[in-house]
């Protein structure tokens, strides 16, 4: 770490985070220069398709990448402490205690051979010197708090005896048992039915308010981020392509990829008469990210950048009031496209 680095005054700040994996086929740049800030009590939604680097980012913040096969550089500041240059033992001490994670599939994310209670007790006792009986009481209390009926009995059940929704609740109880200040939820509701998803989203919103934690929610589902997030970060090819408040992203999106995502999603609340506006092509392979703007091969407006699309990586530049976009198109041209071509079609959808 260079000496001139100034400590961050934000609760969580990522500065130019890069997570690269050397493989036989080449260097996989899963995360390539990601920066953002997040305060306590706020929710950041990270949106992206498969291979955008969103999950790798979350594991990177928790220091869960094996340093043998992942090259991590940049800075991760958590409450004044830099984590990338810290020892693994220091970061381990923070995991579960000050920062915790909820995973996508609670069935595979819990150990099948230990009871739910045991797994929560274990998580609590790593960071607290208490007897098993005390930890068990705490586990039961946590299970009750996340809305599991009869927690005193269910505590001795195995994960396979829980329903999908109950398992995700138990997973949340496990993540929250040490009262973490940063909670990362990686696709927390993707494996769940829609009525259960709604329950879990409500629960996460309530608990975040109670715990006053900073929450990062990682998902491909724009609906989920719209429900929960204060700020939204759109990732593509390992980079942030657009960042802003939820209102920025949904009401005045700036990046053609964001337009594409919005145009790709059929709307539940509107009677559509138009065809969907999909993005052409497929998400890039991270081994072979297109040169210049990673999105240019799929962008309908790449020909309006005067050849810069494939030549230069665009900067992430501020549009106004914290709303940032990584695009070669001049701001006025982007606005013109949005107002005349995109917005009317989206409204009609």
């Amino acid at each position: 770490m260079s000496a001139e680095t100034t400590p961050s005054d934000a609760f969580l700040e990522l500065r130019d985070l890069r997570i690269h994996f050397p493989t036989d086929d080449g260097l996989v740049k899963s995360v390539d220069g990601l920066s953002f800030r997040l305060e306590r009590g706020k929710t950041l939604g990270i949106v992206g398709e498969s291979g955008s680097g969103k999950s790798v980012t979350s594991l990177g913040i928790l220091g869960l990448h094996n340093r043998k096969n992942a090259r991590v550089s940049g800075e991760i500041w958590l409450d004044g402490a830099e984590l990338v240059s810290s020892t693994q033992e220091y970061v381990r001490g923070l995991r579960g205690k000050r920062m915790a994670m909820i995973f996508q599939d609670p069935l595979s994310a819990m150990h099948p051979y230990y009871t739910v209670g045991n797994q929560i007790i274990e998580a609590y006792r790593v960071h607290h010197r208490v007897s098993k009986a005390v930890a068990r009481k705490h586990a039961i209390e946590m299970l009750g708090r996340v809305g599991i009926p009869n927690p005193a009995q269910r505590v001795d059940d195995y994960p396979h005896q829980f329903s999908g929704g109950m398992r995700q609740r138990a997973m949340i109880a496990m993540a929250l048992c040490c009262d973490p200040e940063l909670l990362i939820a990686d696709e927390p509701t993707t494996a769940l039915d829609v009525t259960v998803q709604a329950q879990i989203l409500d629960l996460m919103r309530d608990l975040q308010r109670d715990f006053n934690a900073a929450l990062i929610i990682i998902t491909h589902d724009l609906g989920v981020v719209a429900e929960l997030s204060d700020d939204i970060l759109v990732m593509y090819g390992g980079k942030c392509v657009e960042y802003g408040t939820a209102e920025n992203i949904f009401e005045t999106p700036e990046h053609p990829y964001t337009w594409g995502l919005l145009g790709s999603m059929p709307r539940l609340d509107r009677e559509s008469t138009e065809r969907l506006l999909p993005i052409k092509g497929s998400p890039p392979s991270l081994i072979n990210i297109p040169p210049g703007c990673a999105f240019h091969p799929r962008c309908s407006y790449a020909d309006r950048t005067g050849g810069k699309g494939s030549a230069e990586v665009p900067e992430l530049s501020e549009v106004r009031g914290g709303h940032k976009v990584r695009c070669h198109l001049p701001a006025n041209e982007r606005h013109a496209i949005w107002e005349s071509e995109i917005k009317p079609v989206l409204e009609a959808q």
């Binding site: 869960l64 995991r95 915790a100 994670m101 595979s108 994310a109 150990h111 998580a123 790593v126």
Partner: peptide, 22 residues
């Protein structure tokens, strides 16, 4: 490589416990 090993690490368990117990 299982998800539950990742969970065990995310809880902050020391690596020996992750390997032996989980």
């Amino acid at each position: 490589g299982e998800d539950y090993i990742r969970t065990a690490r995310a809880k902050g368990l020391i690596e020996r416990t992750v390997v032996v117990k989980h």
